[in-house]
Design a protein around this nucleic acid. Sequence first.
DNA 1: AACTGAGCCAACCGCCGAGAC
DNA 2: AGTCTCGGCGGTTGGCTCAGT
Length: 334
Amino acid sequence: MSLCTGLNRCGKSCRLRWTNYLRSDLKHDGFTPQEEELIINLHKAIGSRWSLIAKQLPGRTDNDVKNYWNTKLRKKLSKMGIDPVTHKPYSQILSDYGNISGMLNTGNQIGPLNKNLNYASTPKLEPSSVLTSFPNTNMMNMPREFQNRPSNENIVPSLDFMSHQFQQVNINQETIQPHFFNEATSSCSSSSSSNVTQLNPLPQSYSCQLSQVQNLPSSSFNWSEFLITDPLPFPGFQQQQDRHFPGFSSSTNPSTFAQTPPLNFASGNEYGLNQVGQEEGIGKFDVGSTIGGQTNNNRLEASSSVSSFVNSILDKDSEMQAEFPDILDESFDY
DNA sequence: AACTGAGCCAACCGCCGAGAC
DNA sequence: AGTCTCGGCGGTTGGCTCAGT
């Protein structure tokens, strides 16, 4: 390892120090509400691709964004009753899992638990020690948000979500029943009112009554049911996914996606990010409606065959090609 | 004043891909 | 083709600060 001249640091450390701290164009003040909103929206669209998110925030580094997310935003969302990984209300996650139970028998298996646990971002919580029941599921029936996550974030609800459940159970046993998988179908719609909204700088679509969490479907659960032998629905699926969603697949270098020009990753109008993007004169690229989000409710039906899944990908690809030919066809030189 | 726990954030770690040789 | 170096990335750690007791 070679050291920088006169410094007891390697070149890599010096580069990181420069890029994360010393660069003159970096902001060192706090995040604005607009930046905060953009981070949340981008995270919802593309997950923890911090470098990509940071590219949309002038003067911020990926480290800045990552730290801010881990220390502030994640907790903030969690307190609001929103799973910071899926960006869905906890009650809706449980509802989804309740609705898709029983599909495991179709043959799709859920993969290695240790891999899946990487998806969860809250440390210091051992799911196997705290969670003993959860609805059955499988890859093809996962909420789309899960399916479009990087492969290491694919399968199970986040530990934020789980810890939230247990916090609710432990902290307020009078309002949240310990057996929180009681039958219920409630989920937070975009028009749902909320007590949380008062504390919530985000739009109502993100709001959810925490009390809804208690009304959850009952189902026996065993962690082993999340195990997958093959996380991909068919051989070559990953390659297809890479081809159609470059930058969104785990096997693709995120830099591929980074090669797109500055974009506004508004997931619909949930966060008013279109306005932010327009103010900055950047293009609009509605990831939420085309790829990762639920705006169009293009969730795969539980009965979808593999071919229909592929077709849906191809359809989306065609739509994207038609809508953003300049972006998708453009080549970049660095 | 001393201790403790939580929050924050710069720095580090390990992995991966690209490019040079 | 194989090896090495470099840079980028996301995840994690360690030390500092500060509020609470």
